[in-house]
Design a protein around this nucleic acid. Sequence first.
RNA 1: GCCUCGGUGGUGGAACUGGUAGACACGUCAGACUCAAAAUCUGAUGGGCUUUGCCCGUGUCGGUUCGAGUCCGACCCGAGGUACCA
Length: 726
Amino acid sequence: MSYNPKEIEAKWQQQWEAEQAFEPSDSLSQKKKYILSMFPFPSGRLHMGHVRNYAIGDALARYYRKQDYNVLHPIGWDAFGMPAENAAIKHGRHPKEWTYSNIDYMRKELGTLGLSFSKTREFATCDPLYTKHEQKFIIEMFQKGLLYRESTTVNWCESCHTVLANEQVEEGCCWRCDNPVELKEMPGYYLDIIRYADELLEDLSQLEGKWPSQVITMQRNWIGKSQGLAFDFELTEESKAKLGGKFDRYEVFTTRPDTIYGVTYSALAPEHPITKYLVEHNLLEPEVAEKIKAIANMSEVERAKQDKEGYPLGINVIHPLTGEQIPVWTANFVLASYGGGAVMAVPAHDERDYEFATKYNLPIKRVIEGGEELPYTGSGRLIESDRFSCVENEEAKIAIINYMEEEGKGQGTTNYKLRNWGVSRQRYWGAPIPFVHCDECGLVPEKFENLPVALPDDVEITGEGNPLENHPTWKHCKCPKCGKEALRETDTLDTFVQSSWYQFRYATNPKKWEEVGIDKADADYWLGVDQYIGGIEHAILHLLYARFFTKVLRDLGYHDIDEPFQRLLTQGMVLKDGAKMSKSKGNTVDPDALVDKYGADTARLFILFAAPPQKELEWNDSAVDGAFRFIKKLYDRSGKVTGKTLPEIDQNSLSKESKLARVKAYEALQKSADVYEYTFAFNTLIAACMEALNALDKQDNADVWTEGMYLCSTCLNRSFRMWLQS
RNA sequence: GCCUCGGUGGUGGAACUGGUAGACACGUCAGACUCAAAAUCUGAUGGGCUUUGCCCGUGUCGGUUCGAGUCCGACCCGAGGUACCA
């Protein structure tokens, strides 16, 4: 009988369905494994990247089930987001209809791939039941002061018509549509992720060796902790007068307090309140004011491309230790978003300060020995630094901070590059932020019993403005506190909020889904995810947010887990002709067509065989044929299996070829635990099985065949029964 | 600029803690079967040579070692991240 994947796979898929073969047990006392592939956005169809992601996770899930673990291997849908609205704008389809019909289609695709997902734990993040619990978390975070509303400068994408988080800006452009991001002043909701910066940073060391070091490094750099000194520059009396008595002083931050005696000027960001005051009150030359305004209108990315540029502000400050007068400038390289938007400048020991000082002929004063040329940023002894002269600079850092603290002139401070997470989006297809604006009571959270605050179905989605804002009635409501007429918040939550806690939702027994968002006992049993699999593009975005949410929800009492993902595997991209598969390049391979032609087993075997999962995978049509040949051969040789139990074999009676075949088969078996539990080098395991089969083919002992086939199917994670055609 | 990862045949990739480089597969070539083709099977396949065998070969140049793809140093190239963070 020839190999007919359609028939075989359909048969097994039906049987699995009937047996509910992949549902985890409700018992929370067994040893467990939680295997999770990042859930997909329901874009319409699966692509090869999905197939690779799920093939890897599925191999692990099946392996651990065979080892008698209670395995949770769920799937769901990251279902809110812009593309649904874009479909509405383009094709006139309602985002909800578009999303759920895509889900139905893609669920079928997953089915034909024979993936061993739990069926009962599936959900979409746009399900009102999911929104309900998420809104409750958001309100609890607000009550704890972790969520706040503030008007600040935000990243605005005009084409998506919404605000973006810092993490969603890539080289000054929108991560989704690649449009340049503009700065805009507007109110929004923020999650205080900085409060958790230290823990997020420190706990990375727990993940060492379990997460790719690259991802750990990226998160470390993104959090960007630096320690130093914060102190005030007091303005001179004349300068105070010039500023109309509005300002006495301003704060600066430095990581190099050891160079404080080398300060020759100070620089403020163009957005700094003092700069703004001077511009607005016409206290500068009109041309200068114009130039400063021009800089302020530039994005940070644009500014970074410009040469250093700055203007003296005609004011001075007093050096806190020497009492000298220091001129104050504004400069395009001083960022408003970091360290208070003001710096002390030490041109002798800082490259930027040096470049600026040279350009504008500002004095340069060396205070650290070492190096031939200035600027010198290395270590050495202090000179010309009063009582700190002759001290090694690393010691001096501490000594100067201590001294400043004793004198009440400054303090040791920690700063982070990490910005608080702006979670409001001015879009329709998202979870509404459950607050109400009341003239009397201010910002009031919706009552728990009124959750979810659901989206209205009757909206017009035109791409112009915020559909919720434009809806005739939806935003009008009663204040949950005083009952007067009030306005509902029309911003929705960033979709990354949904993907920050879905791993807990899967873990919660579906019987409790109505009642609770996360069940503590379930969460503590299943979490952390034993193996998480996904693309490296989420190295900071999703993986940082999910870590943050885990800690917040822990502190809200929902569970006792510190880190959501114990181990992380970042899979490589699927390429064709050297480029990422994409519709626009026309180099895609359709998973459906592949499964139709060769069957799911071939598709998955090829994907696991063609490259180690961490690496990029170059698509090769004829190598797919090779995978198909191997499976066909395995199927063909199933006739060689003569018993249903492992035979006893007398090693001494065997031919040289039979002995070699046994060696190869056992080598494969030995490799398998290492591959499934540690290296994930499925390509080498499959190669070992191919070697074993080649060696089996060169001998003809029936018992060795039976044993060899049994071992190969074990390694390949296929049910032995499957080859026996039982 | 800085941080990370990588560079092995025509191709994808093997090679555990230093010990026969190129497993396995693709491709190619030759052969068997066939009227023919497909499918299948068998064999060959890093380069060079004076071809029973020898020499050279893991980005480049040095080093350590009895022995280096693997360890050390310098450099070149590629991919990803990040970018005036004071």
